[in-house]
Design a protein around this nucleic acid. Structure first.
Length: 842
DNA sequence: GTTTTCACG
DNA sequence: ACGTACGTGAAAACT
């Protein structure tokens, strides 16, 4: 068996991968789908071919010799999208880290390097496998040179293989005649002009008959279809030039030796690091199998002896900085360290009881000024330190540094050396927080909030389970009634919940004119249905059916399943989810309990305070618009807020130039929509959809708004400009959001980036402010030793379960702390209500 | 696992 | 010409 070399066409394969693999990004927002797809193809080929040698060829940026000829003929190639361009250097680094040689040469295309390398290999008796998506390379196929072309169909990558004979079978011509073929028919993707009027069919016939272009030209008068004859006669120069363009050079001055290309170990530590940074979890598995590249597992000192444990704990107590992690696996394990060199793992066993370990851990936290750990909120269920300032949540730190990641858990969390990884991350996180100006945000808002949220989760909210069941029960009758009516009107029984089936019924069977909206079919969303045929009885019934089933499944049944044994729902408040700095609520989500429609709103009656308690519900009035007024410094809007009771009305008056008393309800509605739109990063299309007006009218509204409040316009423009230059935007308190979309070559993505740049500082600042208020309210309630508890946050609203005896004092605290959470150039106003249930309190 | 829809701010 | 408002989470259907 002869040896084998695999030669990969770098640009061609990353290009295929880029368009074939769905968009992926790593923690830093770098697009990675091209690299990921490339590696998958590469590993697959390596697994199949098991070659001795490997190299990857790339074009250099500078135009090549062959390319120049063409550039003179017709402009340049279309540019690579930015999302792909940024991946190329990273791929090159990764390949280099794997010890794979890169073939690149001034004046030569990748094709030429591949061709030359393949020919040299063949001459040396080494089989060559060229991997490319470019059909041009088929000209290189021989019995010893195989071209492998990956094709992605329906997400599955298949690879077509071509030896010389396969080329003949597929194209009826020899590999070298592929050049002739291409020269005649041209190839847009390869920038070969070809002969106008000659396509694939004619070209194949001509070459099959005459072998070469020159020979065909020599017999040009015999050529059958007159069209082809004339084309070749008139454009023979073109054919010749195309042939030159299509011919791959086999004499590039390559210096690569086989030894340079020998495949030894791809799985280097450096390559492992790259894959980790790029978030290629699946590929890391290969490294683990290969073992070689995996960084050595750290030395873990297992502490089982009681005296040793005591020793360790008393030593750690005196350190300035430690990290620790807890995990359960047949008992409690505590991983902890005070250095990057060694890590200790103490497990529950014998005298080392769970209680003992947790007590010791608490003592250490009390003494050591900086104690790093992951997910401190989860930890608090086990360890209750008095000195909260000592805890450092590495996940929250990482979230502030980049809030766009899907998870902040580090991969070693379940290992005995978990704390070592945590410890290693700490200095970098601290430095970044400092450098990025977020240390204060972290220390004074986010870390204290961990404890506030923990107490809120522990407190939970009391629910009347019986009443909730009855509420759900009451919906069933109406749902069945509607279901029957809809099926009757449709003339058949179908699943109303299936947008697909519903679309067919409405738009095909019943002939309603429906715009195809989604990728998969018709859109049947409420706003589309409403606009299309809001007056048709079946549509009305469907909309009502949707509402009812939503209430039943998500709320009545969903919430019922979340009631804990104490009769309360303990929703989780997540601090590292949103891109803007808001908190989110899950299991269940208590931040989207119905309120806008009366029927849904009624569900709030089942949320009730504990005995001898009452709900106090306080919400900020238009906090985002007020934040905008402050941050933009627009004098007119600030003034408006200082006097206005009804900001939307005043906006309407100012924008439409009518006296405040003559503002029509329609004008107020429009002004309100514009105010919302401004906060969202306005677009005329979005506003037009919201108001059911033309984009032209919407555009006029926006223009008039900006004329009225010029400070807003310049502020928003400035945000986008800043984001384009710096790559991120910030809130008043320094919270950051990167906006990588602004670099996109895609118009839609870029527009999205602009809206994000306008919205995030506003939404994020409002989030900062309410977080400050939450901490202060929470701390005040504790300081004043009250039984009343902060139990919910709904973005601009706080719900407190207040002891009846404390209610008046709690109300003062809520008003005071919420209003004074931030000092803005406009007042922060709150609406506060009391109630025996959430429905009444809102 | 992804898509669609809809509940909230 | 592109095809959208910003930020979330849950349920059900679909692939």
């Amino acid at each position: 068996m002869s040896e084998k070399i695999v030669l990969i066409d770098g640009h061609s394969i990353i290009n295929r991968a880029f368009y074939g693999v769905p968009d992926l990004t790593n923690a830093e927002g770098l697009h990675t789908n091209g690299i990921y797809g490339f590696l998958n193809i590469m590993f697959r080929i390596l697994d199949e071919e098991k070659p001795e040698y490997l190299a990857v060829a790339f074009d250099l940026k500078a135009p090549t010799f062959r390319h120049k000829m063409y550039d003179a003929y017709k402009g340049t190639r279309k540019p690579m999208p930015e999302e792909l361009r940024e991946q190329v250097p990273v791929l090159k680094e990764l390949l280099t880290a794997m010890g794979i040689p890169l073939l690149m040469m001034e004046g030569y295309e990748a094709d030429d390097l591949l061709g030359t390398a393949a020919k040299k290999s063949e001459e040396a008796g080494v089989d060559a496998v060229i991997v490319s998506g470019d059909r041009d390379l088929l000209q290189l196929a021989t019995e010893k040179i195989m071209i492998r072309m990956p094709k992605t169909k329906r997400g599955v990558t298949e690879i077509e293989n071509y030896h010389a004979q396969d080329v003949k079978d597929a194209y009826q011509v020899t590999p070298s005649q592929i050049i002739e073929l291409k020269a005649l028919m041209g190839d847009a993707s390869d920038n070969i002009p070809g002969v106008p009027g000659i396509g694939e069919k004619t070209a194949t016939n001509l070459i099959a008959a005459y072998g070469t272009i020159e020979n065909a030209y020599a017999h040009v008068e015999e050529i059958k279809p007159n069209r082809a004859k004339e084309a070749l006669k008139n454009h023979y120069d073109m054919a010749e030039m195309s042939k030159e363009l299509a011919t791959i050079c086999l004499e590039a001055p390559l210096t690569l030796s086989f030894e340079d290309a020998r495949l030894t170990n791809l799985y280097t530590t450096e390559a492992y690091e790259w894959c980790r940074k790029l978030n290629f979890k699946k590929l890391l598995g290969r490294f683990e199998e290969a073992e070689a590249g995996k960084p050595a597992e750290p030395e873990v000192t297992m502490v089982t002896d009681f005296a040793e444990a005591e020793n360790l704990f008393s030593r750690l107590k005196n350190q300035k900085q430690i990290a620790f992690e807890l995990y359960y696996e047949e008992g409690l394990h505590v991983s902890l360290t005070d250095s990057e060199q060694e890590v200790f793992c103490v497990s529950e066993e014998g005298f080392l009881t769970e209680q003992y370990l947790l007590d010791k851990l608490r003592e250490i936290i009390e003494e050591v000024p900086l104690c790093g750990a992951s997910d401190v909120k989860k930890l608090l269920a086990f360890v209750h330190p008095v000195c909260r300032e000592h805890l450092f949540d590495i996940e929250i730190a990482a979230y502030l540094i980049n809030p766009l990641m899907s998870s902040y858990e580090h991969e070693d969390l379940k290992k005995p050396y978990a704390a070592l990884t945590t410890f290693k991350k700490m200095p970098e996180l601290l430095k970044k927080l400092d450098d990025m100006g977020m240390r204060k945000l972290f220390d004074e808002i986010e870390m204290p909030l961990v404890f506030t949220l923990y107490d809120m989760e522990q407190a939970g909210i009391r629910v009347n389970g019986e009443e909730l069941r009855e509420y759900g029960e009451a919906l069933v009758g109406r749902i069945e009634e509607l279901e029957k009516k809809i099926h009757e009107a449709a003339g058949e029984v179908f699943n109303i919940n299936s947008p697909k089936q519903l679309g067919v019924i409405l738009f095909e069977k019943m002939g309603m004119k429906g715009g195809k909206k989604t990728k998969t079919g018709y859109s049947t969303s409420a706003d589309i249905l409403e606009k299309l045929a809001g007056d048709q009885p079946i549509v009305r019934d469907i909309l009502e059916y949707r509402q009812m089933t939503k209430l039943k499944s998500t709320y009545a049944d969903g919430l019922a399943g979340c009631i804990a044994k104490d009769g309360r729902i303990h929703s989780k408040f997540n601090q590292t989810i949103t891109a803007t700095g808001r908190i989110s609520s899950t299991e269940p989500n208590l931040q989207n309990i119905p309120v806008r429609m009366e029927l849904g709103r009624l569900i709030r009656k089942v949320f009730i305070p504990a005995e001898d308690c009452i709900f106090l519900d306080a919400d900020y009035s238009q906090i985002e618009l007020r934040v905008l007024a402050h941050m933009s410094g627009d004098e007119k809007l600030i003034e408006a807020y200082q006097q206005a009771e009804d900001i939307h009305r005043l906006t309407a008056s100012q924008v439409f130039h009518v006296p405040i008393d003559e503002v029509t309800p329609q004008q107020r509605r429009n002004a309100k929509a514009v105010n919302f739109g401004i906060v969202y990063g306005i677009s005329s299309f979005g506003l037009s959809q919201d108001l059911s007006i033309s984009t032209k009218e919407a555009k006029e509204y926006i223009e008039r708004y900006f004329e009225t409040y010029p400070g807003i316009k310049s502020y928003l423009d400035g945000l986008v400009e800043h984001a384009k230059e710096e790559g991120y935007v910030t809130t008043m308190y320094g919270r950051r959001r990167p906006v990588p979309e602004l670099k996109s070559s895609n118009f839609m993505q870029r527009s999205f980036g602009e809206r994000v740049a306008m919205n995030s500082p506003i939404q994020g600042t409002a989030a900062d402010i309410i977080k400050i208020a939450m901490n202060r309210v929470h701390d005040r309630l504790r300081e004043e030793k009250m039984k009343s508890r902060l139990i919910l946050q709904v973005h601009d609203e706080l719900l407190v379960e207040a002891k009846l005896s404390e209610a008046d004092r709690v109300e003062e605290i809520l008003r005071e702390e919420m209003q004074q959470a931030a000092s803005l150039r406009v007042p922060l106003e709150i609406d506060l209500h009391r109630g025996k249930n959430w429905y009444e309190a809102k």
